[in-house]
Design a protein around this nucleic acid. Structure first.
Length: 260
DNA sequence: ATGGTGGTCTTACCA
């Protein structure tokens, strides 16, 4: 029996502000691999020592003020990719790496602002380019996990009040089609492999004190290819880190699986 | 009620 691997993804909305929370949670939750989004740090400022001191390797693709990606892992990290060959994008929103034979693709999908805006168009274009990249990765690697902040709630049950959100950004048909396309190329939403309680979300807007009333959306996901999903034992969202003082607006999502 | 809060080389922009 192989020991289980715990893989997680968390949009931390500034690693500088959330570093202590992340380190604490990493250790308390026995996480082996953590994908981070919105680090908002340039590479020269990345807190490498803080992660290494608790036994983690770390790779990152940073940016000032906005975006910024990282992966922390107890196991060595190889074959790091930060840019797509056929899509030049100065925004740091993708970080792929191989860890213990698993191809991990960490994404921070553009928010999209509002349907019909330039940012919305950028989101759809970005998704299309990244989907092509993932399609190729699925051919090259036997075990693939695509994780991150997708900024898409795939189904109505992933939204606290679909009437309020219907047709808007994060739930619009075109965004959901882009998400469905990711599933159609050979990925599964790990969260939906298991029975889950109702009204489980991963993001709550700071602006409306949304967390207090659990007015959230499930927009952070862990997608696994067939072979990896077959070994997945659990998929959940840990909302405890959203309860603390000065939290990220996102909660971490996590899976437990045996590698073979 | 198209607001609100939170983060950032802040007085604007992003989410």
């Amino acid at each position: 029996m192989t020991e289980a691997i715990h893989l997680a993804s968390w949009n931390v909305n500034s690693l500088r502000v959330r570093l202590e929370q992340v380190l604490e949670w990493l250790q308390a939750s026995k996480i082996d691999i953590l994908a981070l989004q919105e680090t908002k740090l340039t590479d020269d400022l990345f807190p490498v020592d803080a992660f290494e001191n608790i036994g983690f390797h770390v790779v990152f693709s940073g940016q000032k003020t906005y975006n910024g990606m990282a992966i922390a892992s107890r196991m060595p990290i190889q074959e790091v990719v930060t840019d797509l060959e056929d899509y030049i994008d100065p925004q740091r929103r993708i970080l792929a790496a191989t860890i213990a034979g698993i191809r991990l693709i960490n994404l921070y999908v553009p928010n999209g602002a509002a349907v019909g805006t330039d940012k919305y168009d950028y989101k759809l274009t970005w998704l299309s380019k990244v989907t092509s990249f993932i399609e190729k990765q699925l051919l090259d690697y036997p075990l693939v996990a695509v994780v991150g902040d997708f900024n898409i709630a795939p189904e109505d049950r992933d939204v606290y009040d679909i009437k309020t959100w219907s047709g808007g950004v994060l739930v619009s048909p075109q965004e959901r089609e882009a998400f469905a396309k990711l599933l159609s190329i050979g990925l599964k939403d790990s969260f939906r492999q298991f029975s889950q309680a109702e009204d489980i979300f991963s993001w709550w807007d700071y602006r409306t004190a949304a967390f207090r009333g659990n007015r959230g959306l499930r927009i952070d996901h862990i997608l696994l290819n067939e072979r990896l999903s077959a070994t997945c034992l659990e998929s959940k969202i840990d909302i405890e880190p959203r309860r603390v003082e000065r939290p990220s607006d996102h909660a971490p999502v996590m899976v437990r699986f045996t590698k073979d």
